[in-house]
Design a protein around this nucleic acid. Sequence first.
DNA 1: TAAGTTAGTGATTGAGTACTAACTTCGTTG
DNA 2: CAACGAAGTTAGTACTCAATCACTAACTTA
Lengths: 197, 197
Amino acid sequence: MSAEERRESVIRAAMSEFARGGYYGTSTEAIAKRVGVSQPYLFRLFPGKKALFLAVAERCLQDMRRHFEEASEGLSGEEALKAMAESYARLITEHPERLQLQLHIYVTVAAAESAGDHEFGEMVRRGWMELWDTVHIPLGGDVEETTSFMAYGMLINALAGMGFPRGHRVWEGLNVSARIMQDDARSVGAPQDAEGA
Amino acid sequence: MSAEERRESVIRAAMSEFARGGYYGTSTEAIAKRVGVSQPYLFRLFPGKKALFLAVAERCLQDMRRHFEEASEGLSGEEALKAMAESYARLITEHPERLQLQLHIYVTVAAAESAGDHEFGEMVRRGWMELWDTVHIPLGGDVEETTSFMAYGMLINALAGMGFPRGHRVWEGLNVSARIMQDDARSVGAPQDAEGA
DNA sequence: TAAGTTAGTGATTGAGTACTAACTTCGTTG
DNA sequence: CAACGAAGTTAGTACTCAATCACTAACTTA
């Protein structure tokens, strides 16, 4: 297998592992094991753990963008909104590790930023803006609509991350105002506990 | 100093340290050093690192709730909304470590949930619902309004975490549709880079 | 003063960490 | 066939981490 192909498979494996444990909670050995390669060899494919995480974050944002592009292809306005929302809902319910990876990226970039390391932040901001524009266009260039779409998306991330089961009252407001996740609302990760209090 | 007082100071110190590095990125020694106590003694005050993080998360949610209660005291409707939004904006701009701690809690609970550990999740969901109700009441019991408030709050968390500077176009939609952070919008952690692309 | 409790420390342990250096294996090509 | 470069390994270093254990000094109570 060529080094480039190997790098690709390492990124995929690292996406899974970093999704589980985040940056500090993931060992390079775990990634290597998943790829089926020796751990030191990772350092020949990537200069270090940080660079690998960066590559993973970049890929995650790219995937996200492509996801929205495909979902909204040929649609616009309300139709595009519904299509993207449903597509996103399906993505994070069927692949909860995607949600976790996103959360890990947000928190890691925030930590890096306030630690004075802006390299990671620049990349993520660039990725986010591309994502923003990808959503903005099919929504008719409406800034408020796009912002609202992103905001409800972030709330969904949080609720799903916390493990609120579908049908819980905290999801209620989303069905109406966001026109999102009508029938597709589903708990991510955690199962039944109706109220939690 | 009594054990109870010590525990209190440990929680405060741990909030700062966990905000920086999250669960895996924070050593118990760093926390102990900040408290001014030996590292092994932490394990007399708390059964383990995990229990300490749990106590920190609980405290963070409590603080958050109290914050909104105080901000909305005696107000209702639009006035309460503005007061809570401004108060929250001030909190995370003046204390960026609060934002980071919240992000770390969300990601850690998500990881715990999908790893089958629901103890942490139950606590956080309970805390979130209390927070939700605390916001819900002054907003006149309007579910959509409350959901929208929470959603824009989560978007603000994400944008601030990524280090988008105030005035950046990604904040634009928030000024209008969310009636949040009009003049108070401010970058958290990261300084100027106008576009990032 | 004897008995017991509470707050706290120093030394250590065993597991895990990112990363390096030196070696091997093997298909391709002059 | 021999030389080479690229893919990949084994062995190892220097270090960090959570947690445990045995201990002590100060205070309280009777």
